[in-house]
């Protein structure tokens, strides 16, 4: 059985503010699961709980046989969970290649003493991972930027670099936090193409937080809708987007003036 990421009754509160309430869902192999909801609904908080950046107050998050609920973030990511960040969060002073090599950190097995002498085995291992990075650059059409400092790249390209960085981890599940935010139409189309290629060519399940309803309707296999931390609907996009509670959450209810 493939490892599925599973949330069971996850709740999270910051003091008196209930951020998530009884969130439960599971990824399925090669499926694009989209988390939607109005601003402040708790979508990013779910990703942060999965990554170990927030600790849920109750509930369980498991990945295959591993319980992630109390695990350190770097251990969680080493199990094969990669995420992108809403604002890119790239290492601006590193080049594109270096950013992607950082993502391969856990896969490189060299020790610090050998690195200090840059021994033959270190060089060989570097070359292996450099090649793996090149394959990701090829996949994401970033070759022409490989030696540019990320801070000097346009925002749209930076987002793709963030996406490529997650991909360079060779993840089992990808968590995408609003990958399309701040992108123009062309860049969104590129992004959609990358997402579809990951789904069809690599079969990696994705949890995707998105605000662009057009993209959601076109690409997602399944939706999970949150409002004020509470799940209000889930299912196939064409059904969910018509659900009256979802429409209400986004557009509000019609009130008649007295």
């Amino acid at each position: 059985m493939a490892d599925n990421l599973k949330l069971e009754g996850v709740s999270l509160a910051f003091g008196g503010l209930q951020v998530l309430q009884d969130v439960s869902f599971e990824t399925r192999k090669g499926e694009l699961l989209c988390l939607i909801g109005p601003n402040g609904a708790g979508k990013t908080s779910i990703l942060n709980c999965i990554c170990g950046l927030y600790r849920p107050g109750s509930g369980r998050i498991t990945f295959g046989a591993n319980d992630l609920t109390r695990m350190a973030p770097h251990r969680i990511s080493r199990l094969g969970l990669a995420r992108t960040f809403q604002h890119g969060e790239l290492f601006a002073h590193l080049t594109v290649v270096e950013n992607l090599l950082v993502a391969r950190h856990a896969r490189i097995g060299t020790n610090i003493v050998a690195e200090g002498f840059f021994t033959r085995s270190v060089r060989e291992e570097e070359a292996v991972h450099r090649k793996a990075v090149e394959e990701v650059l090829d996949f994401t059409d970033l070759e022409r930027y490989r030696h540019e400092h990320v801070g000097a790249l346009p925002f749209g390209i930076q987002k793709i670099v963030g996406f490529a960085r997650a991909l360079a981890m060779q993840p089992k599940v990808m968590l995408l936090d609003e990958p399309s935010a701040g992108l123009n139409r062309d860049e969104r189309e590129d992004l959609a193409r990358h997402i579809l290629r990951i789904k069809h060519e690599l079969g990696i399940p994705m949890i995707w937080v998105e605000h662009d309803m057009q993209m959601v309707a076109d690409l997602a296999d399944r939706l999970y809708v949150l409002d004020h931390g509470e799940p209000i609907a889930q299912g196939r996009p064409e059904e969910v987007l018509k659900d009256h509670r979802v429409v209400e959450a986004y557009l509000g209810t019609r009130t008649t003036m007295a």
């Binding site: 170990g52 973030p73 960040f85 950190h105 856990a106 610090i112």
Partner: peptide
């Protein structure tokens, strides 16, 4: 120019991200 140095540069100001990348 190897793994440790990249990890050091990664934690420079972006610890959370570095952690999420497996460092």
């Amino acid at each position: 120019r190897s793994r440790t140095g990249r990890a050091w540069r990664a934690i420079h100001g972006r610890e959370t991200v570095a952690g999420a990348l497996g460092i």
